[in-house]
């Protein structure tokens, strides 16, 4: 169950170009959060909260780490926060990745840009369950790359960049064949990337995580819709998602 709490900021760091990592302390959130869920955080003086995916959870330290890109006034305001200050948060929000697939031998994770963070918590959880994790990470350029070494400590990791300044020059989909066999895939990133990935892997089981501008963040306002084939014709990204079956929604 999500709650509105004030989380205490422990650290705020720029870990890549315009990309911030923030670690927050709160016993309830750290105990309740699962990989793939998000925190709905309020930048002071703003009307709408920002949905920011959870990158990692440390239940012993009772902390949650989030990563966000500075793309506008709200995220700029969040980036200016300092350790010791608090962050007004509604969370943990949404539904995370289904991890009960204990039969998994090998999982392929495909992330693009600021879609990479939720896959890190997932990679960690899968690795702890003994799943072999392979990861393909796509970024705009070398300056935007983050968490490469962390993913490398978990399993085979491929990096691609749009401009070729690090790793393979091209798209995440270029690497999928090279990454080899897997039982299930998880992907998060911009919609054009997700379209390409789900098309390429249409015969494989997988899950995707979606992002959208949100209003209430709790399922009431119907701002963040995605069409599907169900009787209602839609799903709510904030409350039915943000994680969906790869072929369960119409991108």
């Amino acid at each position: 169950m999500k709650e509105r709490v004030d989380m205490t900021i422990l650290s705020v760091k720029e870990i890549a170009l315009d990309t911030m990592e923030m670690t927050l302390h709160h016993p309830y959130i750290a105990a309740a959060a699962k990989p793939g869920q998000f925190l709905y955080v309020l930048a002071e003086g703003h009307t709408l909260r920002r949905p920011i995916s959870i990158a990692s959870i440390d239940s012993e330290q009772e902390t949650v780490t989030i990563l966000f890109k500075i793309i506008g006034d709200g995220t700029r305001c969040l980036a200016r926060l300092k350790p010791g200050m608090t962050l007004d948060t509604v969370g943990p929000s949404g539904n995370g990745f289904a991890l009960q697939e204990t039969s998994l031998q090998t999982a392929l994770l495909i992330g693009g840009g600021i879609g990479v963070p939720p896959l890190y918590g997932l990679a960690h959880a899968l690795h702890e369950q003994g799943v072999n994790v392979k990861t393909i990470l796509g970024f705009q350029s070398k300056a935007h790359v983050f968490y490469k070494e962390r993913f490398e400590r978990i399993g085979q990791t491929y990096v691609v960049t749009d401009d070729g300044s690090l790793g393979h020059h091209g798209l995440v989909t270029d690497i999928v064949d090279e990454a080899g066999e897997f039982d299930y895939y998880f992907s998060c990133g911009p919609v054009p990337m997700l379209k390409a990935v789900t098309h390429q892997l249409q015969d494989q089981p997988g899950s995707i995580s979606l992002e959208e501008r949100m209003g209430c963040g709790t399922g009431a306002c119907l701002a963040c819709m995605i069409r599907d084939d169900s009787a209602s014709g839609y799903k709510k990204i904030c409350s039915d998602g943000p994680v969906f079956g790869a072929n369960g929604v119409i991108l």
Binding site: H46, T47, L48, G74, E212, R213, M214, G215, C221, L222, A223, C224, M225, I226, R227, S232, G233, Y234
Partner: peptide
């Protein structure tokens, strides 16, 4: 039943927001 408008359906503004849900 109505399915409403395409997304994005909300945008924050100074001290407010714009919405175009479309009576979904």
């Amino acid at each position: 039943a109505r399915l409403g408008n395409a997304t994005p359906r909300v945008a924050e503004t100074a001290s407010g927001m714009l919405n175009a849900i479309g009576l979904q």
